[in-house]
Every structure is written in C-alpha cells, then in structure tokens.
C-alpha cells in the first residue's frame, strides 16, 4: 500500500483531480493525501469501491483549524540613502490565508489494511468554509461531520441532516476554533483565585473580558 501508487491510480480513474501528498514528519509515518474538494466524493467512492483498496470503513473524521498566520521574511531592497544607492535589508510581512481542514482516517475491514489519511481543505475560514459531505459514501461520517459543523463551522454540502450536535441549537460561535473567545454571559462562582475574582469584577462592571 504505497501512497504514491494510490495517488497515480486515483489520477487515472478520476479525471481532473488535483492531489497532493502531505508528508508527516513524525515516526508514525502516516502521510496523508490532500484532495481537491470539488472531486472529493468521486475520490472517496473510488477508494471505497476499488477492488484492491476497499476502504470500506471510515473510522475517524475530524476538523483542524489553521488560522491565518503572519509570515515575516527578510528581503533585500535597493534604496537611495544619502544620495548613494545601497542595498538594505527589510522585513516584509504577509498574511497567509487561513483555512479549515477535514481529516478522514480510512481502514479496510475486508482487506484489513489502513490507515489511509484523506484531507480536504476549505477555501477560507469565513464565507467559503464549505466542503462536500462524504456521508453518502460512508455513513459513519454522519455524526462526525455534524460535530465538525458544530465545533469548527465547516458546512458540509450534501449532508442529510446538518444540525448542531453537541452545542445547543441557539449557540452561535464555533468553540473549537483557535480564535474562539468565551462569551461573557455566565455566572461566576468567585473562588479564592485572583484570576477568577478579577474576571468576576469585570463581569459585574459590564466590561467585556
């Protein structure tokens, strides 16, 4: 079971599909395959149905949040200083675009192999956080994709029953995102800890924390 060969097989049978192998540096050597969201369902069906692969068991589905990061790089710029052209080093800061990721761990009950790690990425973290649902392919993704929708805010198009699962229906934010801030709307039970007392004070004064 070589990831490279599976990649070329998918390319051969699913037309117009962009794939990328994401290496994993840890000793577990569970490398993953990043699949272009537009063709994800076709790729999933191929992985499930191909006679020698038969990944019929989708074990684990989860989300990962990768917020936008500030990348600073040093570049050399030519500038005119005191009438003389000089080469000056400057740091340029760029924002990398953040995205959300859904990770699927696939096994084969029939062939007893695995795991095969499949990754899908959204375009951004706000308005275009959509991915195709793989629940029609593997039923086991039903609750887990609902959980990702609930906690990370990825919308799975084609999911039969996309509702919140762990948080209550009226809840608005997505608590597993890295930039999630706890709302200042619960009752504090002040204890002897300074941090809690300070928070309670802010809450009583109506200052957001």
């Amino acid at each position: 079971m070589n990831l490279e060969t599976i990649k070329s097989e998918i390319e051969a049978s699913v037309s117009g599909c962009r794939l990328e192998i994401i290496p994993n540096a840890s000793p577990s050597e569970q490398h993953s395959l990043l699949v272009d969201a537009a063709r994800a369902v076709a790729v999933a069906r191929f992985l499930r149905d191909a006679a020698h692969l038969r990944f019929d068991f989708c074990s684990n589905v989860t989300g990962v949040d990768w917020p936008s990061k500030e990348i600073s790089e040093k570049i050399k710029v030519k500038k005119i200083l005191d009438g003389v052209e000089q080469e000056v080093e400057e740091t340029r800061k760029t924002q990398s675009l953040g995205y959300l990721e859904a990770v699927y761990h696939l096994y084969s009950v029939e062939k007893k192999h695995g795991p095969f790690v499949l990754r899908l990425r959204t375009e951004d973290r706000e308005n275009r956080a959509h991915l195709p649902s793989l629940t029609p392919v593997w039923r086991s993704a039903e609750f887990q994709e609902r959980e990702i929708f609930d906690l990370f805010g990825i919308h799975f198009d084609g999911h039969p029953d996309l509702r919140r699962i762990l948080m209550w229906d009226e809840f608005e934010d997505h608590p597993m995102r890295r930039d999630y801030v706890e709302p200042n709307d619960y009752e504090y039970e002040p204890t002897a800890h300074d941090e809690v007392l300070q928070k309670a004070k802010q809450h009583q004064n109506g200052v957001g924390c």
């Binding site: 994993n24 540096a25 840890s26 000793p27 577990s28 569970q30 074990s59 684990n60 761990h105 790690v117």
Partner: peptide, 10 residues
C-alpha cells in the same frame, strides 16, 4: 515535547 507531526492510534 514531541516533534512536529501527527499520529492516529487506536
């Protein structure tokens, strides 16, 4: 502090 990477154990 493990090195950067990922793993799924079951």
């Amino acid at each position: 502090r493990p090195k950067a990477g990922e793993a799924y154990g079951r």
